[in-house]
Computed example of a mutant assay.
Amino acid sequence: MNKPNNSDIIQIHQNAAGYPARLLDLYDPPNSLYIYGDIRLLGFPMIAIVGSRKASHEGIKNAHYFAQALSAKGYLIISGLARGIDGAAHLGALGQKKDQPTIAVCGTGLDNVYPREHQRLAQAIGSSGLLVSELEPGLGPKAWHFPRRNRIIAALALGILVIEAAERSGSLITAKIGLELGREIFAIPGSIHHPLSRGCHQLLQQ
């Protein structure tokens, strides 16, 4: 599969039959979604796996392992296509042959893969899973796009697993939104000396 062309990308409006009802739990649900891939996956039970872009080697291994294990149990893994934990979760869900479904919610238009090094990963996800964005094609990455992407991840998921996170991070914002929406929140503990364990320990403490 090549990079999605505008003609390959489908737009689903909020009042359309294929629009995910779980997004309506948000106070500001997207007016429409742009999707590329298998639209039927939007109705599957999803678990979000999120975490640091600067993840440790152990964090990467954990994200890959839990994504693979949860996929085998019938859950669809959803994440944000970012470096670190997100990318590892998508790869774990795709499986060895990279032909199992996973969903990536993007902080850009679907014809503009970010980060650039995830071009092949996005292609694999589009072939066997689903790429989703509320941003129209042609839009590149902006800082404010990613918190808005995170609220979509939180709303679509039944539960959110945080692998590694600093005390102030987008992953904790995703977990906070999920908690407000009544989603299950999970976190993996780590070393008390590791700064990327602090966010997870904070969640466990709460």
Results as ranks from 00 to 15, higher is better:
Gly178Cys: 08
Gln14His: 13
Arg198Gln: 15
Asn31Ile: 13
Leu41Val: 05
Leu110Gly: 05
Cys200Met: 06
Pro147Asp: 09
His118Val: 06
His64Pro: 06
Gly159Gln: 03
Ala155Thr: 03
Ala17Arg: 13
Asp86Phe: 01
Arg22Asp: 13
Asn2Tyr: 10
Ser197Met: 05
Ile103Val: 14
Met46Val: 04
Pro4Ala: 04
Ser197Glu: 04
Asn31Leu: 12
Leu181Tyr: 01
Pro4Lys: 00
Gly129His: 04
Leu33Thr: 10
His194Cys: 14
Cys106Met: 14
Ile173Thr: 13
Ser169Cys: 05
Pro195Leu: 10
Gly129Met: 05
Ile177Cys: 06
Tyr19His: 06
Ala17Gln: 14
Ser128Leu: 05
Leu41Thr: 11
Arg116Asp: 12
Ile160Ser: 03
Ser171Leu: 08
Ser32Phe: 11
His193Asn: 15
Ser191Leu: 02
Val113Gly: 06
Gln202Phe: 06
His90Asn: 06
Pro20Ile: 09
Lys54Cys: 08
Ile35Pro: 11
Glu58Asp: 15
Ala48Glu: 03
Ala63Ser: 11
Asp86Lys: 11
Glu184Ser: 12
Pro30His: 02
Tyr34His: 12
Gln119Leu: 15
Arg168Trp: 09
Ala72Ile: 01
Ala93Ser: 12
Ala89Arg: 02
Arg149Ser: 06
Arg183Trp: 03
Ala157Gln: 03
Ala63Asp: 06
Ala154Leu: 08
Leu23Phe: 00
Gly59His: 07
Ile163Trp: 01
Gly51Trp: 00
Leu204Ile: 13
Met1Arg: 09
Asp38Glu: 14
Arg40Ser: 15
Gly95Thr: 01
Ser169Phe: 05
Asp38His: 14
Gln11Phe: 06
Asp86Gln: 10
Arg22Cys: 09
Lys61Gly: 08
Glu167Leu: 15
Val105Lys: 02
Thr108Asp: 07
Gly43Asp: 11
Ala175Thr: 03
Gly178Met: 08
Tyr36Glu: 11
Ile185Gly: 09
Ala17Asn: 13
Tyr27His: 14
Glu180Ala: 14
Pro137Asn: 06
Ile188Asn: 02
Ile185Lys: 08
Ile125Gly: 04
Leu131Tyr: 05
Ala155Glu: 05
Thr102Tyr: 02
Ile77Thr: 12
Asn15Gln: 13
Gly84His: 00
Tyr34Met: 10
Gly51Phe: 00
Leu181Ser: 06
Ile60Leu: 15
Leu139Asn: 12
Leu135Thr: 01
Ala55Asp: 07
Phe66Asp: 07
Ala88His: 07
Ile9Asp: 07
Gly59Gln: 04
Asp25Thr: 09
Ile39Cys: 14
Cys106Lys: 11
Asn15Glu: 15
Leu161Asn: 03
Asn31Lys: 15
Thr108Ala: 05
Gly109Asn: 04
Ala154His: 00
Leu76Ile: 09
Gln14Gly: 08
Tyr75Lys: 11
Val113Glu: 10
Arg183Leu: 07
Tyr34Glu: 05
Ile49Phe: 07
Pro30Asp: 03
Ala93Ile: 00
Gly159Ile: 00
Ala16Gly: 11
Ala122Thr: 07
Ile39Asn: 15
Asn6Asp: 14
Asp111Val: 01
Leu135Phe: 14
Arg148Asp: 13
Pro147Trp: 01
Glu184Arg: 10
Gln68His: 14
Pro137Lys: 03
Ile185Ser: 02
His193Gln: 13
Lys98Tyr: 09
Leu91Thr: 10
Glu184Tyr: 05
Ser71Cys: 06
Gly138Trp: 05
Gly37Met: 01
Gly74Ala: 04
Ser197Trp: 00
Arg116Phe: 09
